[in-house]
Design a protein around this nucleic acid. Structure first.
Lengths: 350, 350
DNA sequence: GTGCAGCGTGCAATCGGATGTTCACAGAGG
DNA sequence: CCTCTGTGAACATCCGATTGCACGCTGCAC
C-alpha cells in the first residue's frame, strides 16, 4: 500500500501462506487446489493490500502477453475506426489489448510491424491487410502463431477470416442500378491484389450478366489503391475515354468520394447526370453531397467477430478453419436515380 | 534458429562468454564495459542466431515496458485518428507502442482503463480526455508516472500539454462572421467540464465584444457532449427559442454537422438562410453539404508533439512543465456568407 | 497397526535478461 | 620479487509470478 505496489509475496505474508499457495488461491483455474478457507484468507489479504498481479512477470512465466497485433492499412480511413473498436472492445473483455499498426499499404512496413509485434510476443494477429498472394502470410502460416484475416482474404493460405460477402454486395449494387433503368454501367475496380477488389469486380460482372447487360471493358478502370485521389483519377479516366455511361459502381466509398470531385471538375451533376454507388457505408458518407448510395455491412461486428475467432484460436481451438461472411445490405440514398430519359447516343460505339 | 527463439544464453554460449557479458555487449549503454573484441564476437553470434531480446523479460527487470497508455473519448470521432497516428508514429520511432483506450466520455470507464493500463506497467500516459477538475488527475499527479495532456487541459493540475489556442480560434471564427456582416451570432458551446468548451466560449464572447457586438444569452446553448446528436438538439433549441440569428458558431465540427441536420428539418438553407462555422476541420468535413467553414489546427502534429513531451518526461527530463499551443487557422468554405440584406425583425425581442 | 490414497501446502526451479559484486589476470611500480 | 592497480569477464542475485514435485497430515481399509 505505501509506495511499492503489493506483490504476491506481500499477500502471501499477510495471509500467512506460501507465495505459491497465494498464487493458486488467486487464480480461478487453480483455486480448487486450495482449501476454501485459505482461499478466502488470501483473497481478503489481496483485497486489503490492493494487490494487482504484475502482468509482465506473469507473461514471462506463462509465455502469454495478453496482447495481439492488429495491422490495418490506415487508421485515417474512416472504415477502420469502428472495426478497430469492435476488436478492442471484444479483446478487452477477454483481458487482451490490441497493438495497432498502420501499414500504409506498404508491404515492407507491414513486414516490419509484424516482426516488431512478434518480438513483443503478441499472442496472435489480426490482419486487415492481406493480399491474395501474400508472401508474409507464407511465413506466418508456417509458424504456430494464431492469425485471423479481416475484411480481406488470402487465396493461397487458409486462415480463419471474417469478411463481407463482397460478390453479393457488388451484385446488389448492380441490381439496384439495373432496376433504375441503367444499362451502361461503369466500374471502378479496387486493387486486384486484394480480395475485395477481385470479388467486387467479379460480383459486378456477375450482376451485369444476370440482368442481361454487357460489360464494356472500356468502362472498367482499375484503382491501384482505395483512396479518394485514386477515385478521382479513375473517374477522370472514365470521363476522358468518352464511352457513354449513366452510372458508376465504385469498389468502395473512398473511390466514390473521389468520383464526386471528378464530377465537380466537369460540372457533372449527381445523380441527375450520373448515378453513383459505393461500397462500405463508411461513417459520414451519408452526409456527403449527395448522400451516397452504398453497400453496408456491420463494421463493428466485423471487428468483434474477428476478435472472437482469434480468441478461439489462442484458446487452443483446433478444428477446421472458420471463414465467416457477413451479409451486405444495400443502402439507397441520393446518389442514384433513373437515367435521363434519352441517354446520349453512344456515338463511339455504333 | 530451430523452433525455440534464441535467448541471451544461447548467444552467450555461441560466443563462449557468460550471459552477463553478452547482455552488456549488446546493450549500447554498457558496451564500454566489454572489450572491443568480445563485443564483436557477441554481436556476430547474436546476428547469426537471429537473436531478439525478449521485451517481457527485460521489462520485468528494468521496470520499463516501452508502452504508453493513450486515452481518447472515441476513436470513431474523425478528429482522433490523425492525432493517434501522429502519436503512434512518433512513439514507434522511439521504440514505444501505444495502447489505445476509448472512454466514451465516461469517467468510470476512464478510471478503469487507466488502472488497467497502469497494471500493465505502461511507462506513461497521454490523455485527451481531461476535464477541468479531474478527480482522476488528482491521483495521477501524486504518482510519479509521466502524464501528458492533449487537446484538453486541466485547471487544477499542471501537466505538460499540447492543445490548440482555442480562444484565438474561436475569436477568428467570430471575426470572420462579423466581417461578413453578421451581428446576431449564436453559439453552441461545448461541454463546460472540458477546457475546449470553456475556452471556445470565452473566445466567442471575447470576439463579440471586440467587434462591438452584444452577446445575447438566449443565443448561447450548451451541448453536454461533442456529438452530432447534441448538435442537432442544441440547434433545434436555438430555432425553437425564436431569437433571430443569422449565424452560428459551433464549438466543434460534430456539433456543426448536427446543425445541418436540424436545418434540414425546418427547411433552412445554409449558407443562404444561416451561416455556420465549426471547429477542428476534421477529415471529410470539407465534403459536406455545404463544405464547412471551420477552424483548423494540425491534428497529426498535435499527436507528435504530445508524444515528444511524453518521451522527454519518460527520459527523465525534469525542468518546468511545458505547455504547448498550436496556432489555429480559419478555413473559409461554403457554409458562411453575408447575411440576407433584411434580417427578419426580431419580433420577440422588441 | 500398518499401508495407501488424497488433499492441501510448501519448496524450489523457472521464465530471460539486467546488474552489483567478486575474481582472475596482466602490467606497472617499489 | 612482490604488491598494487585496473580491466574485463564470471558469478550470483533479482525482477514477480507460475508450476512440477515432494512432503505431511488425515482418514479409510485391510
Amino acid at each position: 500500500m505505501p509506495d511499492r505496489p503489493a506483490t504476491l509475496r506481500d499477500v502471501a505474508a499477510a495471509a500467512r501462506v506460501h507465495p505459491a499457495t497465494a498464487s493458486r488461491a488467486l487464480n480461478p483455474e487453480t483455486r480448487l487446489l486450495v482449501s476454501e478457507e485459505t482461499a478466502k484468507r488470501v483473497s481478503a489479504a489481496a483485497a486489503k493490500l490492493g494487490y494487482r498481479p504484475n502482468p509482465v512477470a506473469r507473461s514471462l512465466r506463462t509465455r502469454r502477453s495478453y496482447s495481439v497485433g492488429v495491422l490495418i492499412p490506415d487508421l485515417n480511413n474512416p472504415l477502420f475506426p469502428p472495426i478497430v473498436r469492435g476488436l478492442e472492445d471484444k479483446l478487452a473483455a477477454a483481458g487482451y489489448v490490441a497493438l495497432i499498426g498502420n501499414t500504409d499499404a506498404d508491404p515492407n512496413r507491414e513486414r516490419l510491424l509484424f516482426e516488431q509485434m512478434r518480438a513483443r510476443h503478441v499472442d496472435g494477429f489480426v490482419l486487415a491487410t492481406a493480399t491474395l498472394h501474400d508472401r508474409m502470410l507464407a511465413g506466418a502460416a508456417a509458424g504456430d502463431l494464431p492469425l485471423v484475416l479481416m475484411n480481406r482474404l488470402s487465396q493461397d493460405y487458409s486462415f480463419p477470416s471474417v469478411s463481407v460477402d463482397n460478390e453479393q454486395g457488388s451484385r446488389m449494387a448492380v441490381t439496384h442500378l439495373a432496376g433504375l433503368g441503367h444499362a451502361r454501367i461503369a466500374h471502378i475496380a479496387g486493387p486486384q491484389e486484394a480480395s475485395t477488389g477481385v470479388s467486387r469486380l467479379r460480383g459486378f460482372r456477375d450482376g451485369m450478366t444476370q440482368h442481361g447487360l454487357a460489360v464494356d471493358e472500356s468502362l472498367v478502370v482499375y484503382a491501384t489503391r482505395y483512396t479518394v485521389d485514386e477515385g478521382t483519377r479513375c473517374c477522370r479516366e472514365l470521363l476522358a475515354r468518352g464511352g457513354s455511361f449513366t452510372a458508376i459502381a465504385a469498389a468502395n466509398d473512398m473511390l466514390a468520394v473521389g468520383c464526386y470531385a471528378a464530377f465537380e471538375e466537369v460540372g457533372l451533376e449527381c445523380p441527375d447526370g450520373v448515378s453513383l454507388v459505393g461500397f462500405n457505408d463508411m461513417p459520414f458518407i451519408d452526409r456527403l453531397r449527395p448522400p451516397l448510395t452504398t453497400v453496408r455491412f456491420p463494421h463493428y461486428q466485423l471487428g468483434t467477430e474477428a476478435a472472437q475467432l482469434l480468441l478461439e484460436r489462442i484458446g487452443g481451438a483446433e478444428g477446421p478453419v472458420k471463414v465467416l461472411y457477413l451479409a451486405p445490405e444495400l443502402i439507397v440514398r441520393g446518389s442514384t436515380t433513373a437515367p435521363a430519359l434519352l441517354p446520349a447516343p453512344a456515338a463511339n460505339d455504333c
